[in-house]
């Protein structure tokens, strides 16, 4: 107990000042919305997505933020969260259920969190996870443009992240230059959960009877990838759509989004 308290005190010194309430030092940035060309070209949308304006957290949720959350909501502590919502590896790199320890610095993005847990965190601050479209729209920006995706230099920069060995400790959040919306770390730090990760049906629609695969999807939802050169985004899609809601992995974190009052597409 004393060791735990000491560790907590030491961690407290290392933590950002003011990181008391979950997410208190992670500002909300406003994104205007509008019509957006998604890399996911569904048959029914033609790749066009109408987005309402929304607010997005400037940075991914940190270990310190998440620690404050599990202290306020003990049912989401490691060992208490039911396995149906968070697999056994949930927060396994933390020293204890309410102790970060040497492998989880307060200002690193929280990882090893399930989709259910990420959703619960966001709901605890009256927010939600961003949809895939919102995340993709936000992640199209660079420092000067809302949509930098056609610039080969932008693509190169993002792809460079994938050549960094993933065994390295995660950097702290907030190291990258804010984009035109004031948002940071959408690329280059961690993968991020989205609310509808399981909706990205990367499979052709086929209504013929007999073949079990043919029955999986009802309605016109055939998906094609509109922009095969946008590997960075396509890799996200492939990864996110392969996950189950209770999965927790080493490079997967999240940030929250909120509706703007009165926003309409």
């Amino acid at each position: 107990m004393r060791v735990g308290l000491l560790a907590a005190a030491l961690l407290g010194i290392g933590a950002c000042a003011g990181a008391v309430a979950a997410g208190a030092d992670n500002p909300w940035r406003t994104l205007p919305g509008g019509e957006f060309a998604s890399v996911l070209r569904y048959e029914d949308t033609g790749g066009k997505v109408a987005l309402r304006g929304f607010a997005l957290q400037q940075r991914p949720v940190t270990n310190a933020d998440y620690l404050a959350f599990v202290k306020q909501h003990p049912r989401w502590q490691r060992g208490k969260a039911p396995v149906v919502f968070a697999e056994s590896r949930y927060l396994e790199h933390w020293a204890g259920p309410t102790t970060l320890g040497p492998d989880a610095k307060p200002d690193q993005p929280v990882v090893m969190v399930s989709w259910f847990a990420a959703q619960a965190y966001c709901e605890s601050i009256d927010a939600r996870l961003p949809t895939w479209s919102e995340w993709e729209y936000a992640a199209a920006a660079d420092e000067t443009r809302a949509d930098a995706r056609s610039d080969p230099a932008w693509r190169e920069r993002i792809l460079a992240w994938y050549s960094v060995p993933s065994g390295r400790p995660l950097p702290a959040v907030g190291q990258s230059a804010p984009d035109v919306h004031g948002v940071q770390d959408l690329h280059g730090l961690v993968w991020e959960w989205v609310e509808d990760h399981s909706a990205m049906l990367v499979s052709a629609d086929n209504r013929e009877q007999g073949d079990p695969d043919a029955m999986r999807f009802c309605g016109a939802g055939a998906l094609s990838m509109d922009d095969r050169e946008n590997y960075a985004v396509l890799m996200r899609v492939a990864m996110l759509s392969a996950l189950e809601g209770d999965d927790a992995t080493k490079n997967l974190g999240f940030r929250c989004a909120r509706d703007l009052p009165g926003a309409r597409p």
């Binding site: 909706a199 049906l201 016109a220 939802g221």
Partner: peptide, 16 residues
């Protein structure tokens, strides 16, 4: 383990 997506016309694409 059911996957779904709302379609533009109000239908849903979903695993059955």
């Amino acid at each position: 383990g059911i996957r779904y997506r709302a379609l533009a016309d109000g239908e849903f694409n979903h695993s059955s």
